[in-house]
Simulated assay, not measured.
Amino acid sequence: MTSTLTALLYLGLFLSQTVSTEKQNLSKPIIWAKPDFMIPKGKQSPKQHGRRNIAMFHIPAMTPLTAGQYKCIYRSKKLWSNPSDPLDLVVTELYDTPTLSVHPGPEVTSGENVSFYCRLGTATNKFFLLKEGRSPHPQHRYGNTQVEFPIGPVTTAHRGTYRCFGSYNNHAWSFPSEPVKLQVTEDFGDTSLAPTEHTSFSDYWDLDLVTTEAEFQQDLASWDHTAQNLLRIILAFLVLVALMCLLAEDWLWRKRAQEKANGASSQECRRRFRTQRRLNE
């Protein structure tokens, strides 16, 4: 009995020392839209083959009802992640087409001040200016029929193609204006460097996905470690229960042995008393 209790006690101590209580943190997910965050009215989002750690939520056709701000979260085991950064999904081609112009002209020298002017024949209350290949956070100005977007002093980083939109709210826009390409030539001493080729939003996101999937793999490995810890906790609990049962059984066995010993002692005392009484008689 003693050797069994010792072995179980050692096992329980070993398991308790291997259990860790590290807090698990899930990485924040990323949400994006394809083909872009701006979808013309009635157009469909393309269906794609599923990838690991990526969930597809298909919108059959864009309308003002499906436009709006979106966030996503995910769950691993019983733990929920924090929500992603918000994504503003915009439906376009709802209003007339604005016109976009640039002053002093589409070809300027670095260091000059440049202004884009967006004009819409029908009155609106907000205008957006977008540069192709940039993150989906366009500049905006409030106005009635025309607004100015001042930019400058410009550098070669401002090279690119621009469009503007009119809107009555943040998620329902007009047709896009005709593109205006801004050319910025370097001045003497201007050493600023910037990419001039167009890069789509999906290219930026695909680069981020490599890091994001690596983070998900780390989360999965972390959860494997958590599962192992949980198994150790369960085993330690079972060992503790077994130890308590054995201790209780040992206590009961000792109690019964003591009771038997006390009973035998009482019988012996009574036997001796009767024998002594007979002798006296």
Score class of each variant (00 low, 15 high):
D96A: 07
T97P: 00
T97I: 08
P98H: 12
P98E: 09
P98V: 04
L100A: 07
V102H: 10
V102K: 11
V102N: 11
V102C: 13
H103D: 12
P106D: 13
E107P: 00
E107V: 04
T109D: 15
T109G: 11
S110L: 10
S110M: 03
G111W: 04
E112T: 08
N113M: 13
N113A: 08
S115P: 01
S115K: 04
R119C: 11
G121K: 12
G121V: 11
A123C: 01
A123V: 02
T124G: 06
K126Y: 07
L130P: 00
G133L: 06
G133N: 11
S135N: 02
P136Y: 12
H137F: 13
H137P: 00
Q139E: 08
Q139V: 02
R141L: 04
R141S: 05
G143A: 14
N144R: 14
T145D: 03
T145W: 01
V147D: 07
E148Q: 15
F149H: 03
P150K: 06
P150D: 03
P150A: 11
I151G: 02
G152N: 09
P153F: 14
P153N: 14
P153R: 05
V154L: 09
T155P: 04
A157D: 07
R159A: 05
R159W: 01
Y162N: 03
Y162T: 03
Y162F: 13
S167W: 01
S167I: 01
S167T: 01
Y168T: 01
N170G: 13
H171P: 00
H171T: 14
H171K: 05
W173R: 07
F175Y: 00
F175P: 00
E178N: 10
P179Q: 10
P179I: 13
P179R: 11
P179S: 05
V180Y: 12
V180C: 09
V180P: 04
K181W: 09
K181Q: 07
L182F: 10
L182R: 10
L182N: 06
Q183L: 08
T185K: 15
E186K: 15
D190N: 10
T191L: 08
T191W: 01
L193F: 11
L193K: 14
T199N: 06
T199W: 01
T199K: 08
F201P: 01
F201G: 14
D203A: 14
Y204V: 06
W205Q: 15
D206N: 13
L207V: 10
D208S: 07
T211Y: 10
T212E: 13
